[in-house]
Design a binder for these strands. Structure first.
Lengths: 343, 343
DNA sequence: TGCTGACCTGCTCAGATGAGCAGAGGGCGC
DNA sequence: GCGCCCTCTGCTCATCTGAGCAGGTCAGCA
């Protein structure tokens, strides 16, 4: 190298080449003629410019995704798939985008699950709404945890499952039981009921699970719905609970926060969720970082749908304890069909 | 078209294709395999994405340029060349960037001018400083307007010309005279002096002129240097002066603001500047928009070096009276060598 | 029902591009 | 001073990509 002078001249040349290539749409050959260098040199200058970040290419679209983060999440946590959308500043918008992304993911899932197990909550309701009518053909839906009121007013557990099923021309099977029972005996009795027991059994056979997670605080839907009191939440937090998955409160270690409470919680067990072939977590927002981390680091989901802040938060922690692979593994294959079924 | 549905699906598909192409560096063929479409469709999707602005390509570099604005300036004002740099927020930085760009332009000028006529001022001094040592070989420099103090302390008219010449291994010829004389007789006498007259004569033969422009206000170097008083400036503004070019105050119409004062101003005339083959204006900053407009719309420069705000301000005015051509003329050829002489 | 025109699709083919290679040049240690 | 080694250069060749074209599809309309 002839000292810094030539390096600087090269950089300037690279900037000029980049302008002519990306803004003026000239061919590398033409640029070579203008800058008096060979076209091969122009190619190298452009490669340099890209490497050094002189050229910034950005995809500005609400449905854009962060594939690099997705890849990192997959390899770090051993996930089968990850969907990461750019995070808008507005929290409401953010939740909508994540829900939309989850809907996109469902639409493009292959093979199409014949039976889909779903949880319920605000997030999943948004996913249901984001699904286009006819998003699939003949997908049946089964609820995987209790919490239904049989009325179908919007926002309830029932309406979520029903909407997802209806939009795919399938049948919804609801779990007609509270999420958490006050007494263990009641829970066992309800569970023993043929209807309820049958639904749970059916849920165990679902080809895929779609669920979100709640934060362990008083804004929880469990408090709204009256299954838990504010005091219960305080007690759970004292035991280290960070949030709930399909109604079960867990700690950062991925273990049940309160076994007694858990025994009174009706629906799929954590172990059943963990051993599922396809379990899709839909989660977004600052508040949910701890519960997201608990789920993801302890293998409770095989697919995550989230936004970039959460993704970064998950990746930023130095410990990648759950089957960690090098975060830069480039060979991971991604199959991301985008639109509806391509006929 | 199958209604909006297909259009939306296409857009989503375009976003996915863009991500895979620009972020994951896959070939269109590979993308086709992933998205289950043919590679030609992928090509079309990418073209759509670029058209609709889904893909934003930006060149982030202090030396980047705004070629589209340059082209517009050239065609609108019939310039031979225009250099427009992105405007940093900081005014000081902005002046430095413009000066740097002017230096780049000088370095890459072809043919190399054997004799370069230069004006003086803060801007040109920065240009001189931005020039690399050995920026050319054997370029001689001549001052085109008065204002020299024979001492060579930095910042004076003399040091600018000398620095430009020295750095190109050439000789500087200074114009040993005040910029503006108090009495017409004195001006005529000095002009008649063999030395001074010879220098002016030499200036008339320069292959190119390099100059900036001043604003008609009390921050002017003419006030600093004592050639004009604050009152003189007030009077000039009252006559419609917007600023000065090579020491001569002009109005927005491009005419001399005060002929009597002008007669006492020593150096190249406005007409001589206007009829020059190559006259390079270096100018930047909000305050200078009016004088820049006056110069550019009245053919006083053939090349402009500026920043994007000024460029936009010049273009925003609906009247393109000076030999205007359609602003979108795509055939205009630009020759913009970038680095040093490519040997 | 059949026609029309607009649009979309997949194709051919030529031009544009990137990978990889051999040779040139220049710094640096022996 | 000499040779070694590293880097940069210009090249060949295979691949990738975009322009343009012919055929297919579909809504609108008589």
């Amino acid at each position: 190298m002839v000292s810094t002078e030539s390096a600087a001249a090269n950089e300037l040349l690279a900037v000029r080449a980049a302008e002519l290539y990306y803004e003026e749409h000239k061919t590398q050959d033409e640029i070579g003629a203008i800058l008096r260098v060979t076209r091969w040199k122009v190619g190298r200058l452009l490669a340099q410019a890209r490497e050094r970040g002189i050229i910034r290419i950005e995809i500005v679209h609400p449905r854009a995704r962060r594939l690099a983060l997705e890849r990192d999440l997959c390899s770090r946590f051993g996930l089968r798939d990850a969907i990461v959308v750019p995070a808008p500043l507005d929290e409401v918008e953010l939740q909508a985008r994540v829900a939309e992304a989850a809907a996109d993911y469902l639409v493009s899932m292959r093979p199409v699950p014949r039976l889909l197990g779903v949880s319920w909550g605000r997030t999943l309701h948004q996913v249901a709404e984001a699904l286009p009518v006819g998003w699939s053909t003949g997908v049946n839906v089964v609820q995987i945890n209790g919490g239904v009121s049989l009325s179908k007013r919007p926002g309830t557990a029932a309406s979520t499952a029903v909407m997802i099923a209806q939009k795919a021309g399938g049948q919804a099977t609801l779990l007609p039981s509270p999420a958490i029972l006050e007494r263990l005996e009641t829970k066992k009795a309800i569970e023993g009921d043929r209807t309820v027991g049958g639904v749970v059994q059916m849920a165990r056979g679902a080809a895929a699970y779609l669920f979100s997670a709640g934060v362990a605080d008083t804004t929880s839907v469990h408090v709204d719905s009256g299954y838990l009191t504010a005091d219960d939440i305080v007690a759970l937090v004292a035991r280290g609970a960070v949030g709930d998955v399909i109604g079960r409160y867990i700690t950062a270690d991925g273990t049940i926060a309160d076994p007694e409470l858990d025994a009174r919680t009706l629906g799929l067990s954590l172990e059943e969720l963990r051993s599922a072939a396809t379990s899709i977590l839909v989660i977004g927002g600052e508040a949910k970082h701890p519960i997201a981390r608990a789920i993801v680091t302890h293998g409770l989901c095989s697919v995550i749908v989230t936004e970039e802040h959460t993704a970064r938060a998950l990746l930023d922690e130095a410990d990648g304890d759950a089957g960690a692979a090098p975060a830069t593994d480039p060979d991971r294959h991604h199959d991301i069909p985008a639109g509806g079924p391509p006929s």
